[in-house]
Amino acid sequence: MSLSASELNVGDSRTEVVVDNLTRTQLVQYAGASGDYNPLHTDDLFTREVAGYPGVFAHGMLTMGLTGRVITDWVGDGRLQNFGVRFVNQVWPGDTLTTTAEVTEIRDTDDGPVADFSITTVNQSDKPVVTGTASALLTP
């Protein structure tokens, strides 16, 4: 179901846990599906001893993918016009991530009403891991 402009107001927000206790296996799953086999995400030995990080960490695009569900569940399938994020902190196995999306503007366009959202995903320490924006076409 798509979302109607009359149901939505600037300032409306949704907050959801998008992953609870992120597993290394999910990083493997994402590597396989996305095709990004960078060892930084699945190979602890390489990541510690060669790359110099404390251990494997999540693909930024996995965090973006987890985050996107909050918007698509809200606005409905096939309604998204834009989705963009900055990766501001790394995500580690064991992290629990919570995404908040908030309506920042509702504007009229030639295609119909469009809602703009601000998006922030934080970890269990309330530290932002991605921040971004999205826009979606509404029904009048």
Partner: peptide
Amino acid sequence: GGTLHAEQHFTYHRH
């Protein structure tokens, strides 16, 4: 330090 992903933006013209 290698290369990391800093930003990603998508525009959906059609699905």
